[in-house]
């Protein structure tokens, strides 16, 4: 029973990563935008949702006690607004500028999480983030299972939504812009605006992931949103297969499993005082893996599938 409860917990965390991966897949897989500040966008979502939903607290601003759904919506809105701002600033320039600026966003947001104590609770973070199914908390298994169900439902809903978009005129236009920007422009498409939309959509999804995670764990602190997270998510998407939404979900579960298992292994093998040191080897392994995949199988496990617009119907020969 305890093992099952742990499995449910493990899968729930993996599914929150899957949400981030789906967001990144919109930005990178479908649009080719390189975001190095994922942790910042996820953290922003987590904090916004926490501030909106936590009970009032004397030591800081916020604590509006709103329902969790309002927190999620606020997080997505915040993620979209931040993405729009970053996009407007950098998308007209070379692609590396977006990378550098998003990197900077994550650094700057990390400082805000750490230092704006009256808003974020500072280094100690915020406790009492309301958890869905808090009534089950006595029974770890039931609690984890219920949360797993909610998180899976979010992943499924996002997956269906993104697949719908991919096959919509919007998805087709995005593919056209990615294939040949000049030709798409000559056909009246506005590449800058499409990229901006895709970047904002991805940012909103990442922020939603942060909110979902914060409410599952019930606690939020700056240490959850280190550059490490950005790096893990990239490894997940590249391993799973960028451009492919199923690949994004598969990669999240797989890399998170490798991460959790290697962490458990280190805890077994190394003495307690050497564990922090050994944990850095985990990162080395993931980093090397990322580079090897880029070198030898850049399409990942599940390569991108050519998607075709819906509503094309069958051709009626005698029409």
């Amino acid at each position: 029973m305890e093992l099952l409860a742990y499995c449910a917990f493990f899968l729930t965390i993996a599914m929150t990563y899957a949400i981030i991966c789906l967001g990144l897949n919109v930005q990178w897989g479908q649009t080719g935008l390189f975001n190095v500040g994922i942790a910042g966008f996820v953290g922003l979502g987590g904090y916004i949702s926490a501030i909106l939903t936590t009970p009032e607290a004397a030591e800081r601003i916020g604590g509006f006690g709103l329902p969790i759904a309002a927190g999620w919506a606020g997080a997505m809105l915040g993620g979209a607004v931040l993405s729009l701002a970053v996009g407007l600033l950098t998308l007209r320039m070379r692609s590396d500028y977006l990378a550098i600026t998003t990197f900077g966003i994550a650094v700057a947001l990390q400082l805000v999480f750490q230092n704006a104590e009256t808003l974020t609770g500072g280094a100690f973070g915020m406790a009492f983030v309301p958890r869905p199914f808090a009534g089950f908390q006595g029974n770890a298994f039931a609690f984890n299972l219920a949360n797993l169900a909610v998180t899976c439902a979010v992943v499924l809903a996002l997956y269906l939504l993104l697949e719908h978009l991919l096959r919509s005129p919007w998805g087709r236009t995005l593919r056209a812009v990615r294939e040949d920007e000049v030709a798409a422009q000559a056909l009246g498409k506005n590449p800058a605006s499409l990229r901006l939309q895709a970047f904002a959509l991805g940012g909103a999804i990442m922020a939603l992931a942060g909110a979902v995670q914060a409410h599952f764990i019930g606690f939020i602190a700056p240490g959850n949103f280190l550059p490490m997270m950005t790096f893990q998510v990239w490894a997940m998407l590249i391993v799973g297969g960028s451009g492919n939404n199923r690949g994004a979900i598969l990669g999240a579960v797989l890399v998170w499993a490798i991460w959790a298992l290697s962490g458990a292994l280190i805890a077994e093998v190394f003495p307690a005082d050497q564990q922090a040191r050994a944990a850095s080897l985990q990162i080395v392994v993931i980093g090397v893996m990322l580079c090897l995949i880029l070198l030898w199988r850049p399409q990942g496990i599940l390569p991108e599938i050519r998607s075709v617009s819906r509503h094309l119907g069958r051709r009626h020969k005698d029409q």
Partner: peptide, 15 residues
């Protein structure tokens, strides 16, 4: 170029 940037990002974490 952006793939190389990504590789540098992975290598940076590993190093």
């Amino acid at each position: 170029a952006i793939i190389i940037v990504m590789a540098s990002f992975g290598a940076s974490m590993a190093l």
